[in-house]
Design a protein around this nucleic acid. Structure first.
Lengths: 327, 327
DNA sequence: GTCTATCCTGAATAGTTATTCGTGACGAGG
DNA sequence: CCTCGTCACGAATAACTATTCAGGATAGAC
């Protein structure tokens, strides 16, 4: 609790001021400033960052609100969402960049959600990955428990699966992480039950009912974890379609009303159940793009999803879909 | 007087704002900003400079006063100078960098002097060169007449001789320049008079009496135009010393009282006379360093110099010299 | 006094930004 | 419809800036 408050006290304000003036006001390159100040160019670079730090130089940017409050309001009002985060995006971007932008601009708000929670369930997905990457714990708080919401897909660990995301999220909040130690899809219902009842997994399953917050993606038939990783065949997809499946959350498929579809897969999935999600106070779906509109509308209608983080184009598509259903 | 007021109107403020936010607030490198904004990195660079231009980004530096007002006050008070510009400098700098710094920080103030003048005489010297290099005409004014205060030294044109400096100064103010077409040192008095009376040079000589402002350097015996260019021999210097010479202005040597020394050189010099300088309302001496203190003190005492631009170390030395003389 | 441990520095260089320049798009004039 | 002039764009690259690293200075421990 002694000195050490500021960094380098050895540089006088006068010196920093002169350096800053030459660089920022007069526009000299650092090498020229260095000659005038009789120091080396690297030192000028250091002096300048110190000057910024000490507030001798101030760079202010007019406020930019990355959120589309208008669309957010519509989503909350028309779909009954608890929270909506709609991020403005640039048209024509690649999905990869879109995900990054959405995650970047939403990070601060999502951090709030997380900091207010005790227990958080987390699924997988690339937008979720970007989001977790961008998160920074706002204050040095501890006690957060993160649980993996669904089993692992395939045997190759993947940086955007719940396992990695959960681990990363927990470490950022200095919290603890509980993994769900099982493949997401098991050969049959009894095996599934057996594995989920193992002592270690019971730790996790018990938490599924006690989460304050779940972070999930929402998939479509064409674009779910199973489809993407090649676990589903075309035939499987047709079967699912026949069963009325419109979307997927945590490996579980649901219909237009957000009710879980009764298919052979149903009881082989190791993940938080839709019923448990429904009982979770806040379920934040994180998606990007317009192609998930129907699935999202259904998930929201079924109360599987309570809050939404999405790009503005996706939000507009979702609203359009919801409207057309009402008509 | 039509459109064309601002640069690129094709970029929305929204876009600039977002770019600026990502770069300045979030600290992303331009390449990353480019991906998010779906443009190229060079475009981000352009967007950012446009954002600064439009005031969306503001970089402010606490005011830095490069002048030592305290020393200036002392100089004006104790030596009776009209104006004193004392520039703060960093100890240990090379003379080259010192000259640059002094010129840089004084440029704006000297520009004022020049803009207020009708006719300006200019001598040579390296600090003067740096000064002229840094000058920018403040408003687009015309009508300035610049005259070369002393003949040329040697046959190799030199970028810090009056010829070049005068040409450069005049062009910056969109004024006209009159050169003094002669070597500074002639074989004898009659040749000197003959050349100075040539029609073309008479144009210039006549102006010598009508200058509002003269920009000059002040030399010492060890360090004058003549010494530096190898025109003086050691013997010449000894002769000068014997004649009481302490300093030099425009090729003319003066003693401790600022009176011109009566030496063989005296009548062979082609330049503005000391008497003409005395009658010039403002003579700004521009020097750097402590070694000219005595010469400066004498020049000021003799009313050859009315104003002074100097570094703080030089100013202090000058004050010390002046004090010791008084005692 | 000697030995660490720590900190500071600038040369070298990795990393980032600004500019140049060739290309292609667009529009006015033929 | 073609030609020409103008302009904007981004690839290449020049210019500039930040960081790394190794060596030297300094302060404190013994």
């Amino acid at each position: 609790m002694s000195g050490r408050s500021d960094g380098n006290a050895r540089f006088s304000d006068e010196m920093l001021l002169m350096t800053a003036r030459l660089y920022y006001v007069d526009g000299l390159p650092q090498a020229d400033v260095a000659r005038v100040m009789h120091v080396s160019q690297p030192q000028v670079s250091r002096l300048l960052s110190l000057a910024r730090e000490r507030g001798i130089v101030r760079i202010s940017v007019a406020d930019y609100d990355p959120r589309d409050r208008n669309l957010e309001g519509l989503l909350v009002k028309r779909l009954g969402l608890r929270h909506a985060l709609v991020i403005k995006t640039v048209r024509g971007s690649k999905v990869r960049d879109l995900r990054y932008a959405v995650a970047h601009f939403a990070a601060a708000d999502v951090s709030q959600f997380i900091s207010n929670a005790q227990t958080v369930a987390i699924a997988g997905g690339r937008t979720l990955q970007d989001l977790v990457d961008q998160l920074r714990e706002p204050s040095h708080r501890s006690g957060l428990v993160v649980v993996q919401a669904m089993g692992n897909v395939g045997s190759v660990p993947n940086p955007y699966d719940g396992l990695e995301l959960g681990r990363s999220l927990a470490s950022k909040w200095n919290g603890s992480f509980l993994m769900l130690n099982t493949p997401v899809l098991l050969p049959d219902s009894s095996t599934r039950d057996a594995i989920m009842n193992l002592g270690e997994n019971q730790q996790v399953v018990r938490r599924f009912s006690k989460c304050d917050l779940a972070l999930v993606g929402v998939g479509t038939l064409q674009n779910s974890v199973f489809t993407e990783r090649g676990i589903f065949t075309d035939k499987d997809i047709r079967n699912m379609t026949r069963a009325g499946a419109l979307g997927e959350v945590c490996g579980r498929f649901f219909d237009a009303k957000g009710q879980e579809c009764d298919t052979p897969f149903r009881d082989r999935v190791a993940s938080i159940t839709l019923e448990q999600l429904r009982k979770t106070p806040n379920v934040l779906a994180v998606t990007v793009g317009a192609d998930r509109a129907e699935a999202l509308a259904a998930a929201i209608k079924g109360n599987l999803v309570k809050s939404l983080l999405i790009d503005d184009v996706g939000a507009q598509a979702l609203l359009a879909t919801a409207e057309s259903v009402i008509k």
